[in-house]
Design a protein around this nucleic acid. Structure first.
Lengths: 204, 204
DNA sequence: GTCTATATTCTGATAGAC
DNA sequence: GTCTATCAGAATATAGAC
């Protein structure tokens, strides 16, 4: 009778513990960098000895992998939460660009895990990697809806976005020097690929 | 009589050994990543035991620091070698952009050392860091000569460039997907900041 | 599922002989 | 200036008691 409820409880508890472990790993990564995440450190934060973590994750890389998948999942959610986008293509692009930018700037360690191969020997699993492709698909679909079709144009857009983010994180962390350029980038891109006016900013 | 010549010889030999050590470290970094550089590994390549390296560098970080400074120095040279630039501002920009791009793409590990804080606890010395500022100055001076004066415009330019490089290294290493966008980026930038036509590519 | 104890391996760095 | 020997510490991971 109580067999099923108990099993649910256990599964829930187990999942909660997994989550605590991941949260601890994120906290360390944010404070001291991705490579500062150690099993001892994580264990200490969750009130466990390091070896006990192996009851929940088969290896340290599995923890990174879960973090990687989670990060991309959260980005997907952040982008999906944008719909419905403004009817104006340029306003729609700006809204999406700002969402992406803010997601990246909110957690540089997360951005580093997602985009830069910064952990020796770590390769995301196929499942986790698929989530990053999903974001790419999402962007492509969105741009297509706005009338941007060619692969080169999509590359152009991702280049503009990642450039702004990278410069912000590298040269003005916590600031807004490149975030302020987003309306300009949107106009430049929209002009280049032939999206309708009016511009967000007045032309010079 | 021979005191001075001998001292020169020794200094030369010593400098040559230092260079061999750095070359070995670069080779390892290029093959297996920056963090794969170990004193034992470097020593093996130069035919020394690890402790002997301390006769030439006071610490492992000092090796990284020399590499960092050298990388920026080489970029400075690559950029200086561009003068005289084409008279056409847009062609001048394209030439500089391609030089920067190719420098980065030629050695991703070097680019990572220069731009991303990827080695735990490593901070470049003031001397080495000054070289990176020199590149920034060089770019500012060059843009100013072309008529680009505002700090925001300079930020825009560095964002466009670093975005193309980052996407190339992350998503199409060894390829040309983003390198091909450079003429387009130059035109977009030139249009935005009001540089004279004609465009490099025809407008759409 | 968590623990202690330990294996294994690697790291940067130092001491001191030669 | 290079060597051997070693330190001191960190890391991931495993074995097995409870």
């Amino acid at each position: 009778m109580t067999a099923l409820p108990n099993r649910d409880r256990r599964a829930e508890r187990r999942e909660a513990t997994r989550q605590e472990i991941l949260d601890a790993a994120w906290a360390i990564a944010r404070r001291d960098g991705l490579t500062a995440v150690t099993l001892r450190g994580v264990g200490e934060r969750v009130g466990m000895r390091a070896p006990s973590l192996y009851s929940h994750f088969p290896s340290k890389h599995a923890i990174y992998d879960a973090m990687f998948g989670r990060a991309w999942h959260d980005l997907i959610e952040a982008l999906r939460a944008l719909t419905p986008l403004p009817a104006s293509p340029r306003r729609a692009l700006l809204r999406a660009a700002e969402a992406f930018f803010d997601f990246a700037a909110a957690d540089p360690a997360r951005y580093q895990l997602m985009n830069q191969a910064s952990i020796p020997d770590f390769r995301p699993s196929a499942e986790a990697y698929a989530r990053s492709l999903e974001v790419y698909d999402l962007m492509r679909t969105e741009l297509r809806a706005l009338g941007v079709r060619s692969a080169a144009d999509l590359d152009l857009w991702t280049g503009l976005l990642s450039g702004a983010v990278n410069q912000q994180l590298a040269n003005d962390p916590g600031g807004t020097r490149w975030r302020r350029q987003l309306p300009r980038l949107v106009d430049m891109f929209a002009d280049e690929v032939g999206l309708p006016t009016p511009r967000l900013r007045r032309a010079r």
